[in-house]
Design a binder for these strands. Structure first.
Lengths: 239, 239
DNA sequence: TCAAAAGTGTTCCGGGTACACCCATGT
DNA sequence: ACATGGGTGTACCCGGAACACTTTTGA
């Protein structure tokens, strides 16, 4: 193949026009009221873009992959830089690489994360806003589609694994844990059956403490860290 | 930040030393005897590397992502170029991006694929070899780890979805389908129960044809293409 | 004392498993 | 005829769903 026209000649300044760049973004889920004193909702933080493309629109927190960091590290770093958050759970979601998903060629490695209420930094950094995961406004790039996929994965994985504790503090009552499941799955769960199921799963450690306040005090539980294994298969360390 | 030493100055020739490149590789599974007249085994084709790094070692088929193609297209293309194969099933597996997984910085988007016996091109292209998925020799880069993960995903997904037909031809007997499951899962399955389970799943269409040859003829089945949906969630098109 | 949530007991149902049994064909 | 795999019937077990019931607190 020989170059015949100027269109075939790559720019001398090889910034973006002729290379594929790798970005890392993260969908961060938390459970919080989306309006003051409203019910708990699956919510996520978004960052307002301050430059083109899509200036002014909301987008997933993220940034460029540095040449000397792994993908998971890049997710953690860009997350902290843009939102100030450090999630308790972080897992790779998918690599998005459609040619037209950005004006320049960008492959985005997207992670998804869970954070506990006590890890949420309120109004930590400018240009960050929290949104309910359902009914988002139009986001930059293909980020609406990405959030939908992450939400599907969250709902799916809650069914067969015990990640829900990533949305709770260290100690919690069974009612609080059940509330997490009900919010994510968007349906009521029988308290009696729910109790037995999580108790039999072996992932809960009862403590001697109780949460008091209204009605009969409820026993507090803690999560058994030794479980969780045998979930992602032979892949132990994030890449 | 200001540049103070030569180490900080990027090379004018921006080939590989200061950029992250994106590669695409695929783990292709087929069911075939690994030695002539042996039992059916989960096997995959590997390509012998003809240049450094890891010259002479076996590696997953793959190549560089072209700037004008999506990730899935790149997987199909590099697959065809290196092995001559065109799989019936192709799905993204994981993005591998550890800093030290290659001498230069490479992020690999790995796909996994299934191919039917009739799609296998025997001795089609030089430098391609077939190996049993268990007990591979040491491969180039982190490819052993990648294959193990793909194998885990295959075994896992066979349990809850109906992808096994991606390893069979258009028409097949229940015994042949059961053989696929038994080979992948490495355990015997009850013929009676297996029949009822796949029949009740609604994914099989009985034909009027029978496979004769030994003993009582077995009815041939075809797969219902209309199913398979509601599996990868809202992600319909590969990116 | 009453409302409401915590916690227990019991029944029912459906799907998976084990296994006995009949059917149809090649040799 | 008989061995062998194709195909059917059935009993059992276990986990989830439904729901009645008792316990313990705050108000």
């Amino acid at each position: 193949m020989t170059r015949t026209t100027v269109e075939d000649t790559p720019a001398v300044d090889a910034t973006a026009s002729d290379t594929t760049r790798v970005a890392v973004s993260t969908v961060i889920f938390a459970l919080r009221p989306v309006e003051a004193d409203g019910p708990l909702t699956v919510a996520l933080p978004l960052v307002r873009r301050t430059r083109d493309p899509h200036e002014g629109q909301w987008a997933l927190p993220g940034g460029w992959l540095d040449i000397r960091e792994s993908l998971g590290s890049a997710a953690s770093r860009t997350l902290a830089e843009t939102t100030g958050l450090a999630p308790s759970y972080l897992e790779q979601l998918y690599a998005f690489g459609a040619v037209d998903r950005s004006p320049t060629r960008v492959v985005s490695i997207v992670y998804w994360a869970l954070i506990r209420p006590d890890e949420i930094v309120e109004d930590g950094i400018e240009n960050v806003g929290w949104f309910g995961a359902e009914g988002l406004p139009p986001l930059a790039f293909d980020h609406n589609e990405i959030v939908d996929y992450a939400l599907w994965r969250l709902r799916n994985k809650v069914g067969y694994s015990r990640i829900a504790h990533g949305l709770l503090g260290d100690e919690f009552t069974l009612a609080e844990l059940r509330e997490v499941y009900q919010t994510i799955l968007d349906r009521k769960l029988d308290p009696a059956n729910f109790r037995r199921q999580v108790e039999n799963s072996g992932t809960l450690i009862p403590t001697d403490r109780y949460r008091t306040g209204s009605h009969r005090p409820a026993r507090l539980y803690r999560y058994n860290q030794d479980v969780e294994l045998a979930d992602r298969g032979p892949l132990s360390t994030p890449h």
